[in-house]
Structure formats: C-alpha cells, structure tokens
Nucleic acid binder design. Structure first.
Length: 586
RNA sequence: GCCAGCGUAGCUCAGCAGGUAGAGCGGCUGAUUUGUAAUCAGCGGGUCAGGGGUUCGAAUCCCUUCGCUGGCUCCA
C-alpha cells in the first residue's frame, strides 16, 4: 500500500485515463479513441462514437474499469519504430491515434500496453492496473477533436482517481463543499443578486444586499485609486460606428458586439470595451511629455455577446462593469509604471484577502511573429518591462508563449479562492494597436511628436466576476468591512424592542450597517436566522442588558462572546470597520 | 453555438409500468413573550417551463421552442 502513495498523482491520473479507454473499448469496440490526459482535478479521455454515452453507460464503464483494476493487469512499455506503431494502430482501426503518431511521433515512439489495450503515449504509467482501484467517473460532455469547432464532435468522459479510498472520499466531500458555496446558490440564499429569464441570460440584477457590498467595493476602489495616482473618468455606454471602425473593433471584435442601433440615421454600438472612449479624452487636447504618465480609471460597464452555453452565474455574463484603467506613458516611464501597477494590483487584491495569486506572463508565439501588430522594438521593450517588474518583486510566474493577444504582451493575475481554484481577474496588457490606430501622440522634449505606450489594465477584472469569486472565497461570510449587514440586534421579548431599536440606531449613527429583528420569535430562532445570513455581529438584548445598558455579543463563526459594554464595543467595531480588517477579535 | 442531462408551489424535492398533484422549509393569520442555530396551530399557494402531437385520458410517452446545469470553444 505504501507504494501507491509514492506514485505522482499525475501518473495515477494518466494511467486511470488509459484504464477508462481500455474499459470503453472492451464494452464498445467500435469506439475510436482520441486523447486522454491528466488534468488538474483528475483525468479525461475523448472518444469518437456514433451514439453519445449516457449516464447509464458511464456506470457500466466504471464497473468494467474496476474489474480490470481488480484483474491487476500489468502495464508494459513498448518502444516501436514509427512505422510499427502506425501499423499497430491501423490494425486496431484507431485512425485518430494513427494521425497523432504521424504528427507527433519521432523515429521511435513509445506505446503502453495493458492486456488487449494499447495506447500511443509518452508515459510514465503505473506498473499495473491494480493500483487504480480508487477511481470514479464524473461526467460526460462534448469536446472537439483537437479543440477545433469545425472538427468532429467527440465524447469526453471525466473521472477522478486517488491512491486511497479515503482521498477519493475526501475529494467528493470537497466537491460537495464547493457546491454548497457556489456563488449562485449563496447569491439566492443571502439575497445578493439574481438573474431573470424575462430579463435575459447573462444580465445581473443586484439586490439591495449585493448592491451594498458592490458599493463598498467601489468606494474602496475609488479611494485607493485616487490615493494611488489615478484619475477617474466616466464615459458613455454607446458610441458611433465610426469610432469602432477606427479602433478596429468592428474588424476584429465584431462577433462579440451587439447589433448597432440607429440614432439620427447613424449607427451606434453598445461598447464592448472602454479604451476608445479614454483615447478620445486623451485626444481632446495636445499632450506634452510633461503630462505623462496619465493614469485614467473607470468603472466602465460594457456589453459583450457571449454564446449562450458559456454563461455562468456572475463569472461569465453579457453585461459587466470592468474596473478599467489606461496608463499612457513615455517609453522611459514604462518600467516604473509597470512595477507600480503590479504593486498596486497585488496590494488591492490583498485588501480583499487574496494573497495567494498565480501570475502568468503572456508573450508572442516565436513561430508566428507575423500575426502581431506593433514593432519588434515595442514588443521587446514592453516584454522586458513586464519581466523586470515580476523579477524585481520576485514573484513566481509562468511564461505563456503564444498566449499574448495580437496587440501586446500581458500579465494576468489569477486569484486563488478558498478551495484552491484559480480565477482570472487582473490583466495588465500593452496595447500597440489602439495607440497606432487613433494616432495618439505627445510632444517630447525635442519638440517632436512621439507615440506613447498605452497599457490597458483591469484590476478586479469585472465587478461581477470579482464579486462572484469573493462570495465563494468567503463562503458568503464577508469580513466586517464588506458585509452587507454588519450587525443585527435581537431583542428577546417585546419589552426589549425599544432598547433594541435605539441600539440599532446608535450603530447606524456610528457608521455601521445594522438592522434589528423585531419578529415575534424565540431568540434561538433569531440567532439561527442571523447565523444563516452570516451577519458578522449579533447583539442579543434582554432584561439584563436593558438594565445595565449593555448587549450580549455573538460573533459569526466564533459563537457567544458574552456581555459587552456598548461604547467600547462600538469603538472596537468602528475600528475593525475603518481598518478593513479581514478578521475581528473582540 | 455544439454534446449530454435537467425544467413539478418562492426554495429543496417527492409523484412516472399514462387515470387528472404532494411534503418540508419559506409566506400569511392566530396563539405563545420567549436567553444563544428551527414554539405550536390554521390558511393560502402550482395553465407540472411554453407550444404541438399520440391517447378515452398526459406532470408521466413523442416532437418542438425557451431556459438552466456540466463540459467544449471563447473570455473580465
């Protein structure tokens, strides 16, 4: 048993994918196999087959997988010449494998074989199928051969595998936990937001409590931006087609834009991005190098067409508010500006409790340099500034070659939620396209016109997505400073209501968001309600408290804290609120 | 958009070899005046997502539209 624990999880997963394909071919020999890698949460295998797999089929397949695992079939590694391998899979009528071998195979290729099943694969794999006992299939979905939508639609089966039964069970408990803290579920339970079929998909309705949190986030955002050297802008939601023509959006972004509306015989488009508007402001007058850098931020609401199947709660919507900013600077300023925006981003994410971030640097595809706009010099300088900023701070990052957008390199920060899942929020990207197309210039020391660098940046990303991630990260239990309702006062009996109301008022006068529960329920019920609503501070008042001018404090997640002096409690609560503390300790 | 699954009261779900709809919670009303996670009782509430078909009869079977979910592709 000790040896199974020593196997790297990716090897286990990849071997489980082979086990899956083995079982599928046993049961449905006409199936053609695609690829079957290990992924972050388990493994999958793609199959090409006339009839799609049903949930019943999955059960049968899983059963067969377990049988093969019990048979403990040895897994052997074969080294074949490319021709031998091609012949082998031609005999098996696995033309997709043949295609892969022809594309990817060197002079010799490796094939892993277990019983009748063989797969073209680099490996490594476990020694025998007996090590794959703790396996479970999760779901089946569509996928395209080589990810190409025009290619054949395949059936992808997902599964999970672990070294021990306990780990498998823990994994499913974790999935259940994730389901419980799904922002869509919590959004309804905590009355934060909703969507409506009558309204249309991907459009968010912010309820009073959700809007409250959003307003707190926005206020904090504005405060930090003004303090951080940014100016804040407002721009409209629509603009003339000519603007989008100039920006190039009608060329390269039209598929994501909604149909134009007609205003005085002129076509206008709903904005999918804010940049052209900021550029109009830039171009409203001459700019000198003395004016730069400009840091212009806006909470800009944009509308983008997203295909129906991609919509997902708050994380993928059709109308959203970006916390957008454009930094316009001279070439000499880019290094310091990039470092500054990186520090600023990391610092604001930390304000919200996100400190464990994953950073990706997306650069050009060296094999396809033609598809990018902007000169080589621009790119090199921009890339160097991004790398330098990351290295100056010593942040580990992943270099993603070919992941850059056509108009410039970028840094993405993916924040990690409490369950270890990553969500892309921050993006810092150079834009060589807009500055060129709009002919942005500034007058340099030499009196000549120069092209400024423009950096596009979304920090929280979109307020919708960020809020969704925040809800999941905190499991709905917002820290005091963000909580829609920070304190609730619970009178025990009717005779305590006046005192409770007065206390509620006093909290409000002290800048705390408070409410009072005047329902004719027992205090146990009121506490339960307040706990379910995840209200950080609960103040119970009865005869004793009225008499002494106190309250009994209960802190969400911490339980009963006993009687507190009101003046002292309010001062402490105000301080936690003012400090934007992520934890409170009375 | 594509593949698969799903759509029954505000929410969570039961009902399905086809005979005309049920529970819990929430809501409302009343009683209870309550001390740290659910007081009791009563009452409302559903063209079973919409449309079409098969049938004497459809929540249940078939077709279709819409929506949602899990993925694919894309992305803040």
């Amino acid at each position: 048993m000790s040896e199974v624990n020593d196997i790297p999880i990716d090897v286990l997963r990849h071997s489980a994918a082979h086990l899956l394909a083995h079982a599928v071919l046993d049961l449905y020999p006409e199936t053609r196999t695609g690829i079957g890698p290990a992924v972050e949460t388990g493994f999958y295998y793609d199959f090409l087959r006339q009839t799609p797999f049903t949930p019943d089929d999955l059960e049968k397949i899983e059963k067969r997988m377990k049988e093969i695992a019990r048979e403990n079939t040895p897994i052997e590694r074969l080294v074949l010449t490319k021709d031998e391998a091609v012949r082998m899979f031609e005999e098996k009528k696995q033309d997709l494998k043949v295609e892969l071998i022809r594309e990817k195979g060197d002079a010799t290729v490796t094939v892993y074989r277990q019983g009748p099943f063989a797969d073209f694969c680099l490996g490594p794999h476990v020694a025998s199928t007996g090590l794959l006992q703790n396996v479970k299939l999760l779901s089946v979905s569509g996928a395209y051969w080589k990810g190409d939508e025009r290619g054949p639609q395949m059936q992808r089966i997902y599964g999970a595998v672990f070294a021990t039964k306990k780990e498998l069970e823990d994994h499913f408990r974790m999935l259940e936990e994730a389901r419980k803290r799904d922002h869509r579920r919590l959004g309804a339970e905590l009355d934060l937001f909703s969507t409506s079929d009558d309204l249309g998909g991907g459009l968010i309705l912010w309820h009073p409590k959700g809007a409250r949190v959003r307003a707190v986030i926005e206020d904090h955002w504005r405060e930090r931006h003004w303090a951080g050297g940014y100016d804040i802008l407002f721009t409209p939601h629509i603009g003339r087609a000519t603007l989008w023509q100039t920006s190039g959006h009608l060329g390269f972004y039209k598929d994501s834009m909604y149909s134009p509306m007609d205003i005085d015989d002129q076509p206008y488009y709903l904005k999918p991005m804010n940049c052209p508007f900021h550029i109009q402001i830039y171009k409203s007058r001459m700019r000198s190098y003395r004016d730069l850098p400009l840091r212009w931020a806006e909470l800009g609401t944009v509308y983008r067409y997203e295909r129906s199947g991609t919509l997902h709660g708050l994380l993928r919507v059709r109308g959203f508010t970006q916390d957008d900013a454009h930094i316009i600077c001279t070439p000499g300023q880019i290094e310091s500006e990039i470092l500054r925006v990186l520090d600023f981003s990391v610092s604001i994410l930390a304000d919200f409790g996100f400190i464990d971030n994953k950073i990706e640097l997306s650069v050009r595809d060296p094999k396809n340099l033609g598809k990018y706009c902007g000169t080589d010099d621009l790119w090199c300088r921009a890339e160097a500034s991004l790398v330098k900023a990351l290295e100056t701070r010593g942040y580990p990052y992943e270099r993603m070659e070919g992941e850059a957008v056509f108009y410039g390199p970028k840094i993405d920060i993916k924040i990690k939620d409490a369950l270890g899942r990553h969500w892309q929020c921050t993006t810092i990207q150079f834009d060589f396209n807009m500055s060129e197309r709009f002919g942005m210039t500034y007058v340099g020391e030499d009196g000549q016109e120069h092209r400024p660098y423009m950096v596009h940046r979304a920090l929280l990303g979109s307020l919708e997505r960020f809020f969704g991630v925040l809800v999941e990260h905190y499991n709905g239990s917002f820290p005091l400073w963000l909580a829609p309702v920070q304190a609730v006062v619970l009178p025990i009996a009717e005779r305590h209501e006046e005192y409770a109301r007065a206390l509620d008022r006093r909290l409000g006068e002290n800048g705390l968001r408070s409410s009072v529960d005047l329902s004719r329920e027992k205090v146990g019920k009121k506490i339960r309600e307040a706990e379910i609503q995840k209200i950080p501070l609960i103040l119970v008042v009865g005869d004793k408290e009225v008499e002494r001018g106190t309250a009994a404090l209960r802190v969400h997640g911490q339980g009963d804290k006993g009687e507190v002096d009101l003046a002292r409690f309010i001062e402490q609560a105000k301080e936690f609120h003012r400090q934007k503390s992520l934890i409170v300790n009375f």
